[in-house]
Simulated assay, not measured.
Amino acid sequence: MLIFLNKYLFLNMNIIFYIPYRMILSLLTSFFISLYMMPYLICFLEKYKKFQIIRHNGPKKHYLKQNIPTMGGIIIIFSIFFSTMIYCNLSNIDIWLIISILITYGIIGFIDDYKKIKHKNSQGLKLIWKYFWMSIYAIFLIYIIQYNTPNIFFTQLIIPFHIKNTFEVYYLYIFLSYFVIVGTSNAVNLTDGLDGLAIMPVIFAISGFALISLFSDNINNSNYLNIAYVKDSSELAILCSAIIGSGLGFLWFNSYPAKIFMGDVGSLSLGGVLGTIAILLHQQLLLVIMGGIFVCEAISVILQILSFKIRKKRMFKMAPIHHHYEEKGILEPLIIVRVWIISFIFVLIGLISLKVC
């Protein structure tokens, strides 16, 4: 919006074209919006008793959290949207693609949260319908991305830690992109089981992609780092900054002991955005590294299900894996901080994989 005002109203604010300047402003704006509005949402949700629904087969100590409000993701989405509208170049279609999945997956998550609260059970939206609507929009989004990207470039997959780091996957690229969006969204949702557990890994991964989006916009930097050149990708860095700021504002209230949870409205939307950014930057495989925590959480659930079906035994005391460590008696704050540390290391490994060869 600032770019539009500067261009058409002749405000002569040329400093707004400076990407780092807009990144900082975007981060601070979303941070303070989140910080300011979250207490009002907490009071509203407490007044109308919109509390977190604890699943019956979860850790028993989580029943202490049953009077903590949920759906804090509403403010996360709003602050990201508001900051993006102000500081991003709105003529860039990639910005609108990310905003669209942020809102669409947010709506799906909101319906899921609302049904849980209304019926006072942890089932919420039926799984088949949840995946159906998420899949429909993911496929639609991939079609739009493909339509706006040259076919020969769209099917290129960047392979980390490989000297010939581009590989043509053709139509498999579409399936992979679908899996990245839906899979990442659900993986973030699975990770969101302890106070502040999911939001910091999201912030770390988004920070990594913010750096990559800056380098991808320059053909010399992209050639040097062996990453895809994506025209105007630096605008994504401004949106990523909004996500970081909003996440930090939310963490202020979500850190242990949490005063509010993001709910599915937050986790599904943030996961969908993370996956979409990876696709736009052609870094789907890098997301597997930088989002390694989400991968581990999702795999632990899959292994638990397979182990129980095949061996009739559980591989973990409880899945996702953070509950396994809870059941082993490790204190919740200890688990959270250690997950943050591991997540940060995953991001660093992902970043050095860009130029390791």
Score class of each variant (00 low, 15 high):
residue 173 Y to E: 12
residue 200 M to N: 06
residue 272 G to I: 10
residue 245 G to K: 02
residue 67 N to M: 06
residue 51 F to D: 00
residue 92 N to K: 11
residue 344 F to I: 11
residue 112 D to M: 04
residue 340 W to E: 00
residue 284 Q to V: 07
residue 167 F to T: 06
residue 46 E to C: 05
residue 273 V to S: 04
residue 263 G to F: 07
residue 211 L to I: 08
residue 122 S to W: 00
residue 273 V to W: 01
residue 15 I to Q: 05
residue 123 Q to I: 13
residue 283 Q to G: 11
residue 135 S to E: 03
residue 131 Y to I: 14
residue 288 V to I: 14
residue 96 W to E: 02
residue 328 K to R: 06
residue 305 I to L: 07
residue 41 L to W: 08
residue 353 S to P: 01
residue 232 D to C: 09
residue 195 D to A: 12
residue 142 I to R: 14
residue 51 F to K: 02
residue 290 M to D: 07
residue 133 W to Q: 03
residue 18 Y to K: 06
residue 90 L to A: 04
residue 347 V to Y: 10
residue 7 K to W: 13
residue 240 C to M: 14
residue 347 V to T: 15
residue 262 M to T: 13
residue 55 R to K: 07
residue 287 L to V: 12
residue 78 F to R: 04
residue 127 L to Y: 10
residue 191 T to R: 02
residue 182 V to L: 02
residue 197 L to R: 08
residue 139 I to M: 13
residue 152 I to E: 14
residue 262 M to P: 14
residue 99 I to C: 03
residue 305 I to T: 09
residue 133 W to V: 05
residue 149 T to M: 09
residue 38 M to C: 03
residue 10 F to Q: 15
residue 325 Y to G: 04
residue 155 T to R: 09
residue 162 H to V: 09
residue 133 W to P: 13
residue 147 Y to A: 08
residue 139 I to S: 13
residue 324 H to F: 08
residue 251 L to F: 15
residue 38 M to N: 01
residue 245 G to N: 03
residue 198 A to W: 05
residue 200 M to D: 02
residue 237 A to L: 10
residue 128 I to Y: 15
residue 265 V to I: 10
residue 284 Q to A: 08
residue 124 G to P: 07
residue 148 N to M: 11
residue 354 L to D: 00
residue 135 S to M: 02
residue 124 G to V: 05
residue 278 A to S: 15
residue 231 K to C: 05
residue 323 H to I: 13
residue 239 L to I: 02
residue 9 L to K: 08
residue 232 D to T: 12
residue 21 Y to T: 10
residue 347 V to P: 13
residue 213 S to Y: 12
residue 118 K to V: 05
residue 84 T to I: 02
residue 238 I to T: 08
residue 213 S to R: 10
residue 323 H to A: 06
residue 319 A to F: 00
residue 243 I to W: 00
residue 50 K to R: 10
